[in-house]
């Protein structure tokens, strides 16, 4: 069972920040495009891929880049619900390049999709693109991914060196089983004489009973080393 419940915070509303960075031409294009999508959902097919060259792709805030935020504006303008919305979003992801796919994944928490977009998260987690994996493990995955898959996702991040502070929901969803998996991983690494990424230690320490005597010893040594390095 997950320690879960608290719903992870939603991403910031992209509109206000976007308005302040887009020039007049880009802002007009985006406003008109959102209106076209609201009037006719099929318009999104031509408009969604064109966003990067129309609006730019600089970083907007900690969560969004400009193109991701502008694409979120188009997705949230779709006048669809439920399965119809999921089908359109899925097709945009299917035919999207990596930047378009990141935008879809980052926008999931703003769309009322229930579990219908989980296949997109799962497909991403099967791949090896760390920017996509990071985008997939936001508030939507934290709220909807089943426990076993959430744990595997965290472990995959450790293996592909995605810092765990970029994974949403770890504070509420880390459970004893995840701590056990990470402790076993740490044990394996130490036995091989390799480093253990520091960001797994808080999760492991929150469930002290998963740490066996041998690992405890190794971790204590490691911690002593770190304290020495820091002093």
């Amino acid at each position: 069972m997950a320690v879960t419940t608290a719903s992870p915070s939603a991403p910031p509303d992209p509109h206000p920040a976007l308005i302040s960075v887009l020039d007049d031409t880009a802002r007009t294009w985006l406003d008109e495009s959102a209106a076209k999508v609201a009037a006719d959902p099929a318009a999104v097919r031509r408009l969604f891929p064109a966003v990067r060259r129309r609006c730019g792709h600089a970083r907007l805030d900690a969560y969004w880049t400009v193109d991701e935020a502008a694409r979120a504006v188009l997705l949230t303008a779709l006048p669809l619900r439920g399965q119809a919305l999921a089908d359109d979003v899925t097709r945009l992801h299917r035919h999207g390049d990596p930047a378009e796919q990141r935008a879809v994944l980052r926008t999931l928490p703003l769309l009322d999709l229930g579990d219908l977009a989980l296949p997109l998260v799962r497909e991403t987690l099967r791949g090896n693109d760390t920017t996509l994996i990071e985008a997939a493990l936001g508030p939507y995955a934290a709220a909807h991914l089943p426990d076993a898959e959430y744990r595997q996702a965290v472990l995959k991040c450790v293996f592909c060196e995605i810092p765990l502070d970029r994974v949403t929901g770890l504070d509420t969803r880390a459970d004893r089983e995840l701590a056990r998996m990470l402790a076993d991983f740490a044990h394996e690494r130490l036995a091989a004489g390799r480093d253990v990424p520091q960001d797994i230690l808080p999760v492991v320490r929150a469930f002290p009973d998963v740490i066996g005597a041998e690992l405890k010893h190794a971790l204590t040594d490691r911690l002593t080393d770190i304290l020495k390095e820091e002093s």
Binding site: R46, F48, P49, H95
Partner: peptide, 10 residues
């Protein structure tokens, strides 16, 4: 029917 999606790309 799907060319629209690709012809719009950078």
């Amino acid at each position: 029917d799907e060319l629209d999606r690709y012809l719009a790309k950078d």
